[in-house]
Nucleic acid binder design. Structure first.
Lengths: 238, 238
DNA sequence: CGTCAGCTTGAAAATGCTCAATGGAAGTGG
DNA sequence: CCACTTCCATTGAGCATTTTCAAGCTGACG
């Protein structure tokens, strides 16, 4: 809750966290959304693992990632955690249909986000059809992503899941040869629905087979992209 | 593709399939959507396992279930099938963001659906802000459902999954004591992401423990609703 | 009464999990 | 600069769960 923030001043470069998280994890912003009035938003900085909002909180605002990575998640009674998704630069998150947060959100690494007022959006949506249409587009995008995630979790072996995850992240890497992971193993495990040991073992076995090269825990060299793609799309089980 | 259909005639009771599938599997229709001009739609009947549309087809229409149950699914190269969801009376399905079907749809049992023209919707949405807003509501509902499904698949043991599924279907049963399943075991398995044997074994074990009573393959008496609920919500692992 | 499709059950095999130990890199303080 | 701590990742061994393969059961229907 102790969120460090800075009001956005026009014509002054805001103190982005771009130094610590460089040009990595870029995603093209949906063209329609990137031009929302910035003056309506407030730039906020979050440090690693800092909470953005918590499940069941009142949803008074929503966000857009400027730099860094944010995770949305849910924790069960027994302590198990389910990670719904990772948000990167350009992604919108925290738009709730009901009044309260259905998930919690945290900074995976140091992040910069713009916070918008929900009420302002409601008003804009009522006045401007374009805004409503943009929201619809956003919702459909989110829907597609959720379906993809369910599909990933539903069928597919541990190997297929990990590879699919790697391919998903390869998309965000500027350098196509080396995937730079923003998150620890625990996050990957909670996203894919198993334990860190399994993630680790599968990465190790891919490394042993020279399909990938584990440069460090967070840096993975893609040595055989064609094999990865074959496994990830479910064409090969081996 | 051999879909039997009948053009909707105002003031004439359409030949619903309500005889074969009575008042079961009802879901309250979203208030905003139930009043879409019926004259724009066409009543269509589908028999069990009949295709409504196929993945990658051009999406020229979308649908609302009047009676019966529809499943949306995806088939992999290796033959594995992933069932995205089951649609019951009042549910809208087949609205695509892109121009083509992301999933296939089939009748689980004999069904009656109303088919609407997509283009008509596009025009309505452009003219009427209300329609756009309704679409948004629908998309958000779908998003919530997809997230729930991903959450169900992600963590949770086979027992928890099956129980969660039963509770989900209990909602659709008019009689709260006896759950009437519309679909075969294979559908349940493909929805929950495992094999029919596992589904069968878990139902048998719940029956053995007198938590449920297997009246027949499709009829399940709920004997200990409180225990079911405890397992389904993840409070108990036993 | 036989057939057939869908469901159940059993035994063996595979997959992923738990528990426990080890390794390794970054940060801290002497 | 070097111990020391700490956090995260890896690895191994045994265990639990789920799958696979195969056989039997059941109810619907001709």
């Amino acid at each position: 809750m102790l969120t460090s923030y800075a009001t956005f001043r026009p014509y002054a470069a805001p103190a982005f966290h771009t130094d610590s998280t460089p040009a990595l994890w870029r995603r093209l912003a949906p063209a329609e959304l990137q031009d929302w009035p910035r003056s309506l938003g407030t730039i906020r900085l979050f440090t690693q693992d800092q909470e953005v909002y918590c499940e069941r909180d009142e949803a008074q605002s929503f966000f857009k990632v400027v730099s860094g990575v944010v995770r949305t998640y849910k924790v069960f009674y027994d302590g198990r955690r389910y990670i719904d998704g990772f948000l990167v630069a350009g992604d919108i998150f925290g738009i709730e249909f009901s009044g309260e947060r259905s998930l919690s959100a945290e900074a995976v690494c140091d992040c910069t986000v713009i916070s918008y007022c929900r009420q302002q959006l409601d008003i804009s949506a009522r006045e401007d059809v374009g805004v409503t249409r943009q929201l619809f587009t956003h919702a459909m995008r989110g829907l597609a992503r959720a379906q993809e995630h369910a599909l990933l979790l539903g069928r597919k072996s541990a190997l297929e899941k990990v590879v699919a995850f790697l391919l998903e992240w390869a998309e965000h890497s500027t350098n196509k040869d080396v995937i730079v992971l923003a998150m620890p193993r625990q996050d990957i495990a909670d996203y894919l629905g198993f334990t860190i040991e399994t993630v680790s073992r599968i990465l190790s076995s891919l490394d042993r087979d020279s399909i990938i090269g584990l440069l460090s825990a967070r840096q993975i060299r893609v040595m055989r992209p064609e094999i990865l793609r074959a496994i990830g799309t479910g064409c090969v089980t081996d």
